[in-house]
């Protein structure tokens, strides 16, 4: 099929960007008295037809997955370079692979698995592929990853190991494609993602009181930070880590994230800062009218928006106080 041009795709995204939820709309949803009222705000936006189909606010999840699937189809339709845009959907495939493989090796019950519909491979095909990696149903890099997990699980089943193997397989593929396509934008994006994920692993390992050997297993290659940085950071106090990161682009994320981590003991704030950081990177580049940036930017903005709506709806249905909900919200893209 002939691919649409960057000019065409970016122009379509430009129009759709105007239909993203504004900060003001999000604020109104947060301030709503009830879940019904929050949905009413949503019905004034591009979500209107989907809201009309809903029976009750409790079915919001269905609305959001419909919207996400629409975005997936839209990106497929307009992407001038599907090899690159697909990379941004791989996380769903590998999430599904993790769930399916852990299910096979740990619990064994097959019903009601939390599988994502957004991946590059249909969930049913993924299921069959996991049963038989040799079937040729899956792309080779996924089949190889499954085989690796199977081999590793022969002796001892370690859920951490399954995660690590699959993460590494995913980033192997991502960086291979980025390099082959010489796409500096995507390469930098994933490199920063890997760095931040590795720092998250570092914090986790430190908290568990583990040594560098434990962390080394989890580190994903391809980041811009040296392995020696991580081994050093394992020995040093948190303050030293913050100081050392100050001069890097991740200074702010690490400083705020670590402080919150020390205060609350959770990585929620770090993860939020990490998402915001990556979103801001794309945001800054989205004005290029002849590149993939705006298209990826729209996808990330949409993912972010759906995350926001989910947080608000969950909060409203469970009658969480407004401040609590607001605290959990991320920056809005527009």
């Amino acid at each position: 099929m002939p691919q649409p041009s960057y000019e065409y795709g970016v122009a379509r995204v430009r129009v759709l960007e105007t239909r993203l939820l504004t900060r003001e709309r999000i604020e109104r949803m947060v301030d709503a008295q009830s879940a019904e009222e929050a949905l009413k705000v949503l019905s004034e936006t591009s979500y209107a037809p989907l809201v009309a189909e809903l029976g009750s606010p409790y079915e919001y999840d269905e609305l959001l997955s419909k919207e996400m699937n629409r975005v997936r189809d839209f990106i497929d339709e307009i992407s001038p370079d599907p090899a690159i845009t697909d990379l941004f959907f791989l996380k769903y495939d590998f999430h599904n692979l993790k769930v399916l493989l852990k299910n096979r090796y740990l619990s064994g019950q097959d019903d009601e698995l939390p599988l994502a519909q957004m991946g590059t491979v249909l969930v049913e095909i993924l299921r069959k592929g996991v049963e038989d990696p040799e079937s040729g149903l899956l792309p080779p890099f996924m089949a190889d990853a499954i085989k690796k997990v199977d081999q590793a699980c022969v002796l001892r089943v370690d859920p951490q190991k399954i995660d690590t193997l699959l993460d590494n397989a995913m980033y192997d593929h991502i960086f291979k494609v980025c390099r082959k396509k010489r796409d500096g934008f995507a390469l930098r994006y994933f490199q920063m993602q890997v760095d931040l994920l590795n720092i998250r692993s570092l914090l986790r390992a430190k908290r568990l009181g583990q040594g560098f050997d434990f962390l080394k297993e989890m580190l994903i290659p391809y980041g811009s930070l040296d392995v020696s940085f991580y081994s050093r950071a394992m020995e040093q106090p948190y303050e030293q880590l913050i100081k050392e990161m100050e001069s890097t682009p991740y200074g702010k994320v690490v400083a705020e994230g670590v402080q919150d981590f020390l205060r609350t003991g959770t990585l929620t704030a770090f993860e939020r800062l990490m998402d915001d950081y990556l979103l801001n990177y794309v945001k800054a580049l989205r004005y290029n009218p002849f590149g993939i940036e705006a298209i990826v930017g729209y996808l990330l903005a949409k993912e972010n928006e759906i995350k926001l709506i989910r947080i608000i709806m969950v909060g409203k249905i469970n009658n969480l106080p407004t401040e609590k909900i607001r605290e959990r919200l991320r920056d809005v893209y527009v």
Binding site: P4, S5, E7, Y8, G9, V10, A11, R12, V13, R14, V15, L16, I78, P289
Partner: peptide, 17 residues
């Protein structure tokens, strides 16, 4: 042709423009 592709993209989403 370059500008036309952009124009087509906009009109796809918003024919009023």
């Amino acid at each position: 042709a370059i500008a036309g592709q952009s124009a087509a993209g906009v009109v796809t989403e918003d024919p009023d423009k």
